[in-house]
Write a protein that binds this DNA or RNA. Structure first.
Lengths: 218, 218
DNA sequence: TCAGTATCTGACTATTTGATCAGCTTTTTG
DNA sequence: CAAAAAGCTGATCAAATAGTCAGATACTGA
């Protein structure tokens, strides 16, 4: 022996198969969660023998880590570059629309992330949880400053963030539930636009901000 | 054979043990979800042999059904009796405070319910899902009437309900996450009061309603 | 071309899990 | 108080699962 499976990502040829398995694993973990996920099914979805999965990933935990790492990267690149010096309305609207867009483009990733959060970060590594917390604290500080400067009405920053987070998350998580209420098979791009509009309007009202587009409906 | 385990609930003596096992199962399902739950652990927590669990519940699914049924009963009795003819402010405030109180008193039940919703109602029986949907539709209709009568600002009823639901749920679900942000071990009764206050204020602002207690802060 | 290396796989193992069942003990009943 | 019913349990089973491994196959560079 000597080389571990987790190091095999660096080889050029192995990357295709590795990604193939990783995508299959993402679908599997989304559908069944960590405990419910089956290596066998991951292999079947990817169209490879089961042993091939273990060739690239030492064990189930390593496979899950790899998937989660992808998700967190996605989050970081999408939500990080919001300009801190912009006005509250712009920052909040950008944040909300970005978040909704992420749930639309990567529902699987979002749901895995949500499942992990729901489970109390039982399987995530320490530094990934740390990263998540840092985003939240950063935005909360920003909101507190706005309140101090009377830019927005007083509101508990964490509760406001939770409104945004929980509501968008709720959509991503409970696709079935939502569509069963709306009597639809799938949420369309339009549904997500409406969700984003609606959320922006609600958050603006909470903060006492004027709508940037006065003609927008809820 | 002849008698199935699910019918054994009617006997007087068996009820104590059955409840004992049921409570253990609730804790187990809360912690690990359906797939991750282990009959063995349920038996251990309840302090009974594993075979005793199967004496009262035919299989894992039946045990889960029994737990979920309890939860839904809880929801029904707590949220159903809200007076339909009251004014918007009263109805909304009562609904929110009731919901928050439920997550405080029965965090395990709430989390199981949330997990099931998150999983797209994969294990819940048809009629329980139906019941859940009916609550939502009822409240949504009410909200639409208020908007038509200009009692509240226009807002998508389902999005408003989701704000309430998702935010309270979010607290119940991610106890670990919340406390890691607040740097606390557990959420106190006071935290939940603050959450309820905050939510009521936010929802009122969204709806353009005046606070019932003007001195309340967020 | 060919040796060396990376990639891949079928067959196998050890362990765990949900579930069964025969028989024991306790409670109820006529 | 005895027979019947309900309650209980240790032993055991069949199925499933994560993970291993020896060896086959494909690729690469000298």
């Amino acid at each position: 022996m000597g080389i571990t499976a987790s190091e095999r990502r660096i080889t050029p040829l192995g990357n295709r198969r590795r990604d193939q398995i990783l995508r299959a694993a993402e679908a599997e973990f989304e559908k069944y969660g960590y405990e419910g996920a089956r290596i066998r099914r991951v292999a079947d979805i990817a169209g490879v023998p089961k042993a091939n999965v273990h060739y690239y990933f030492d064990n189930k935990a390593a496979l899950y880590d790899a998937v989660l790492s992808n998700v967190v990267d996605l989050w970081n690149t999408a939500l990080a570059p919001i300009d801190a010096d912009a006005d509250p309305a712009t920052v909040l609207e950008t944040y909300i629309r970005m978040k909704v867009e992420l749930t639309r483009l990567y529902p699987a990733a979002t749901r895995i992330f949500a499942q992990e959060m729901l489970g109390g970060w039982q399987h995530i590594s320490e530094h990934l949880e740390q990263e998540t917390r840092e985003w939240t604290e950063h935005l909360a500080t920003e909101i507190e400053n706005w309140i101090r400067q009377n830019y927005i009405l007083p509101v508990d920053p964490y509760h406001l963030i939770f409104v945004i987070w929980a509501t968008t998350q709720h959509y991503a998580e409970s696709g079935t539930q939502v569509s069963s209420i709306y009597r639809k098979k799938r949420l369309t791009r339009r549904d997500h636009e409406r969700l984003a509009d609606s959320l922006v309007t609600m958050v603006f009202r909470i903060c006492g901000l004027e709508p940037t587009h006065p003609d927008r409906n809820v």
